[in-house]
């Protein structure tokens, strides 16, 4: 198993991915790599790949909700099926309450963060997740 840790970000808007990636890398770039994808489908492939190859351990999945094709809740539910232990947060401009509830129920959604997001809050959440992961690995 690699000692590398990974965070997967999904958003159909590249501008969000650019900003988000940089933000995360600035905060915890030394500890984690950031994988980004513009669609749920592609992101699932990445996750599957990371899990299969065991090249990196996924710490956190961040997903938008309103996207063409697969929506955020569905994506997180399916990601949950692949890696149930990974922390998942939703980062979206708007989402159905029902969708959030469904994600919480079926994907163990840790938190819904609405756009525009507070960087400190997001990083805090990420760091918490990282801590948990590290403890898990150590433990």
């Amino acid at each position: 198993m690699s000692d590398d840790l990974a965070i997967v970000c999904v958003d159909d808007e590249e501008m969000v991915l650019v900003a988000l990636r940089q933000q995360i890398e600035d905060a915890i770039g030394d500890e984690c790599i950031v994988e980004v994808s513009t669609s749920g489908e592609e992101a699932l492939e990445i996750i599957q790949e990371l899990v299969d190859e065991e090249s990196a351990s996924i710490v956190l999945i961040v997903s938008d909700w309103l996207m063409p094709g697969m929506r955020g809740d569905e994506f997180l539910i399916r990601a949950h099926q692949i890696c149930p232990k990974v922390e998942k947060i939703m980062l979206s401009g708007q989402a159905d309450d029902s969708a959030i509830k469904r994600a919480k129920d079926e994907a163990n959604l840790r938190e819904f963060i609405s756009k525009p997001w507070d960087a400190d809050h997001l990083i805090g959440v990420i760091k918490d997740a990282l801590k948990i992961k590290k403890n898990n690995i150590l433990g």
Binding site: V16, Q22, Q23, D26, G93, Q94, P116
Partner: peptide, 19 residues
Amino acid sequence: GVAHEINTPLGAINSSATN
């Protein structure tokens, strides 16, 4: 939906500014 459409670039702006 429109709120989402606006919040998305706002989020990006905010983060990029911080970055």
